[in-house]
């Protein structure tokens, strides 16, 4: 099962955290679980298509300024495994919000 995991968390400029995150990503790659990962803009633009017309609006933006987004695409055997990976992720970065959504075959 493939999942898209997205997170929003306060920005932390912490050398030790960087190293630990690097190790975590390396381990997940080596265990064949992590397919793709990276940072993600918060906000962006929102599109709505209605009656053949497309509306593009900026945002939505969150109130707090110092937040960073990230995403990961993982291949695991169950949603619980994805939850378990998130648990470890938050164990490293601390507070934040996450979301896990299953991805289906193209």
């Amino acid at each position: 099962m493939r999942f898209l995991m997205t997170t929003v968390a306060p920005v932390r400029r912490d050398e030790a955290l960087f190293i630990e995150m690097g190790k975590f990503v390396e381990e997940l790659t080596a265990s064949g679980v992590l397919l793709s990962t990276g940072g993600m803009e918060l906000g962006g633009v929102t599109l709505v298509s209605k009656g053949g017309e497309i509306t593009v609006t900026d945002g939505p933006f969150t109130e707090a300024k110092e937040l960073a987004g990230g995403y990961a695409i993982v291949e695991v055997r169950s949603r619980d495994e994805a939850v378990e990976l998130s648990r470890r992720f938050f164990g490293i970065i601390g507070d934040g919000d996450g979301r896990i959504q299953e991805l289906y075959q193209p």
Partner: peptide
């Protein structure tokens, strides 16, 4: 129980 199973498999 499900968390244990997931940890075990990983």
């Amino acid at each position: 129980g499900r968390a244990i199973d997931a940890v075990w498999k990983l």
